[in-house]
Structure formats: C-alpha cells, structure tokens
Design a binder for these strands. Structure first.
Lengths: 165, 165
DNA sequence: AGAATTTATCTAACATGTAAAATATCGCAA
DNA sequence: TTGCGATATTTTACATGTTAGATAAATTCT
C-alpha cells in the first residue's frame, strides 16, 4: 500500500505512488540485490537460502525460530528452505535433547565450503556498493532505516478509519 | 544477499547480517507495510492488487508494461494479477487498435468505488506514519533512497570475483 | 495423575517473485 | 510480397510470502 498526498481537486489526485515510502524501499532494495543475485545464481543458490546459510555462520547451531528471526523469513518459509538445504546436504539437523520440539540447525561441511566460496564475492560487491554510495551516507541511511523501524514497531498498530472486526 | 565486513580473525567473522543493507531495507519496509495490510485485508485485497489499482487511478488507461513499471511488479505477476482483477470486475481490458499486441487496462466503476473506500484509510495511516517519524526526516529518507537507487542503477553491474558464464 | 493450555515447528493452500520460454503482432529490409 | 528480427504479453515451472491450521512436546493447573 502506498502513501498519498492530501486529497486535491487537481487531476492527479494522489501523487505518483511509485515514490511512496514502501515503493521507495522496495526499489532501493531491488537496486542493491540486483548486483548480488548473479553471483548467487552462479552457485545455484537463492537469496533466501543464502540468508539462512549466512545466519548459520554466526553460531555453531541455531533453533528454527532463531533462524527465522535472524533471516527475517516467515516460519513456513524457513521450514521449506531448511528441507531443501538438508536435501542439498548443506545443513544438518538434530533434535534438542532438552526440548524435543526444537531442532538445532547447523552448517554441514559442504555448507561451510559453499559459504567460503561465495563470501568473497559478496564482500566485494558490498564494498563496491559502499564505495559508490559513500560509507558515511550508508551509515546515515542505515541509522534512519533503523529509526523508522523502531518508531513504527513501538506503540499501537496504526489502523485506518472504519476499523471493524 | 547481505553485506559483510572485512574478513576478520575474530570468532564473529561476518557482522550479524540482519543489519546488512538489504535486510535493513526489508525490515523497514515490513515495519511500514504491517500497518497497511490489515486495512487491505478488510477489503479482500492483496498489497499487489492495491498497487495495480492505485496505479490505474493516475490515468484513464495504461498498458501492461506501463503498469509493471508503475507498480514495480514483474511482468508475469502483473499478468496474473490482472487476470484476477478482471475476474473480480475491478478492471477492464481492451485491445489497442493501433497495436494489437498491447492491452489497455482501466479501472472499472467497481474498481473506482473500491479505491474510493480504501484511499481514506490508506492516507490516514500514511499521515500517522509521517507524524511519528517526522515529515522532514521522511523527506530526507526518501531522498537518500532515491540517490541509492540512482547510484546503483547507473554504471556497470557489480560482479563478484570469479565471474564465469 | 490427568487434563488443559502453551509452545515449537511443520503442513496446507493460495498469491506473488523469478527465470525461461511460448505466442501473437509489428516493423523493416530484401 | 515475403522473411526475419524485434516487441508485448502470457504461460510454465518452481521458490517464497502469507494466513490458517495441524501435530508433537512441554508446562501448568486442578
């Protein structure tokens, strides 16, 4: 859903919403991801699989719910992706002895190899993005994004008029 | 794909990538969209359908490729969404007499009614987002996002090392 | 001890993202 | 006039986003 200007009598009643906030965020993200995607494809990996593998690098083992949070993926998506990664022998899964509802997910040796091969390219791309945009500006943008997220996640949900259940 | 710090010998070899640029953009967008989604659901509409209908408000008729650009949706997605919207009687489709390959898409009367009902809620939500974050800061954020997109869309694609076809 | 509630994860179903390919139409050169 | 390349859109196939619900295990209460 996009933002709108105040209703006006002009023919263009709502600003061109490709410049709304959600759209701007989407376009910016696509402009960034477009550069990473080819490298991922060369290694037969999707963006979401990469996010999972990257998250698993940070610790020797993670629970599924932790992975969902770290990767910002929905639960059902993580379940399916883990199923595929397990089939590709890129991760291992074991049950938590203390709580059998939980699984502990870890990188397999093959998964670690793949990460080793992809990481240098990922870093190189990010370095070039930083160079083009400017490290100072990037830090400012990150701070603003963090603040936007924080401001909107605190306090009550915003509802439109005519709320009904 | 996420950003990375320079390789380090520390145990945390790559920064927690939930704070990478792509992830930050994704989280920020979700923080915004989370407030819009309930209102859309109350009208039985998905976010993408709303984007298409909103785009159609700006002109009496649009081509499919124009719609894809205005809504930042991929061609196959637009095709499917238009099929569904047509089935819901929210849009009309006619062939361009000058070029029969092209379709001209327009809002139907029902579509216009729906937009009239949803728009006030959308605007109210956006106004509250603006109030919470600050209009000045929002403008700055928009400008930075636009610049990021511009910087990354000009010049050559960035490729990682070991490029091979 | 047993029942009820809560929690963690997975599955189902459908919409959309994405890459590749197919189909129809148009424009241009020979 | 015909053939070829380009263009616009749709379709196919598969991955993921999303909501809702199912299953299994743990915790809490009676």
């Amino acid at each position: 859903m996009s933002d709108t200007d105040a209703r006006a009598a002009s023919p263009v009643r709502i600003r061109h919403f490709s410049r709304s906030l959600p759209m701007s965020l989407l376009r910016a993200r696509e402009a960034v991801m477009r550069h990473f995607r080819p490298a991922l494809r060369r290694h037969g990996m999707t963006e979401q699989q990469w996010r999972v593998l990257r998250a698993l690098m940070t610790r020797p083992g993670m629970e599924v719910s932790e992975l969902a949070e770290a990767t910002f993926l929905l639960g059902p998506s993580v379940s399916r992706i883990l199923r595929d990664l397990e089939g590709l022998d890129l991760i291992t899964r074991r049950q938590d002895k203390a709580d059998q509802r939980r699984s502990i997910i870890a990188l397999s040796p093959r998964g670690e190899e793949l990460i080793e091969r992809v990481s240098p390219q990922s870093e190189a791309i990010y370095a070039e993005i930083t160079r083009r945009f400017g490290a100072q500006k990037l830090a400012e943008l990150q701070a603003m994004l963090r603040e936007l997220e924080s401001v909107l996640s605190e306090g009550p949900a915003i509802e439109g008029v005519e709320t009904r259940d």
